[in-house]
Design a protein around this nucleic acid. Sequence first.
DNA 1: AAATCGTGGCA
DNA 2: TTGCCAAGATT
Length: 380
Amino acid sequence: MPETPTTDLLDWYDRHARRLPWRVPPGSDATPDPYRVWLSEVMLQQTTVAAVKGYYERFTARWPTVEALAAAPDAEVMAEWAGLGYYARARNLLACARTVAARGGFPRTEAGLLALPGVGPYTAAAVAAIAFGERAAVVDGNIERVMARVFDIATPLPAARAEIRERTDALTPADRPGDYAQAVMDLGSTICTPRSPACGICPWREPCLARARGVQAERPVKPPRKAVPQRRGVAYVGRREDGAWLLETRGEDRMLGGMLGWPGSAWDRGEEEAPPPVPGDWVVLNGEARHGFSHFGLALRVLVARLPLDAEPARGTFVAVEAFRAGDLPTAMRRVLDVARTSPLIADGEPSVPAQETEMLPPALIESHTGAIRKKGPAG
DNA sequence: AAATCGTGGCA
DNA sequence: TTGCCAAGATT
């Protein structure tokens, strides 16, 4: 086992720590706010620092305390999270905030934190170490990679996790455990990167076994990924004469649960069809809304209709034009809107096409009709 | 325990 | 363009 100079890494961190909005600079006497540490850690789950920054700033500006967040309506929090992905995090975030507010503050131990919704082994250890100074072993993807290289662990993930956790725990100091964890994470994200690590300037260059053996690019060993299947569906973008949009809040048992979306078909049972949310002159657009999820690709056929003021939809509710923001939608639903907006039927103000063109068409005619629209549609 | 759950950036 | 993957949690 190589020497792994923890204190050297803390010295490196004192000089090279990234300045991040949720981070207290090393050496400052300020104590990090547990609420902000927790919020940032949840946002950072499987998500890049660059993507998180803006969301973190907006959340903390709007809800400066866990009590404020706990009091927020679900829809506002989900809308603020829109675009960040993994929406169960936002649902759990609210549940957790309400639990914490009700009990009068965050649990101050790793075990106590682990019991909170949306707080797993990584987040519990990170908050315990960073906000409360507990000597908890923090293991994220960065730290996995660093440890797999420093100790040249050839066991493939996820089987290697037991050993990685042991190694991490053995190295974690009682003094400054939070800074230590952030130091290893910074090392992993700036030097010990997944591809072409900068071993020449690494503070752990000397003890690193994988580097000594020239196998750093092959650590950690990961299983091959499965190919993602392709799925299809339909989405209905309805717009009332007063400009209101027909939207629904998706059930929590569905994909994008809790988020705003266009009524449409399921995507998971091979269903491509679904009845319209309200009877009307629905027109099929030519361009499809394509989106790649983590475990499947999706192509959505988009139908649009202009709806009368007295429309009574079986699904969804109308959102007034001044209350509607595309940014409140998850990305897949924004793509649907992008396609829908290529149709004059959905444009702001009066319809710019003769009424005849908005008639419901027999299926056999849909192809030719949408073919005419295609020229104005987006490429693809 | 393996599958599920988003998104954007980058080589 | 495609594939890879980022401060994981849940069931």
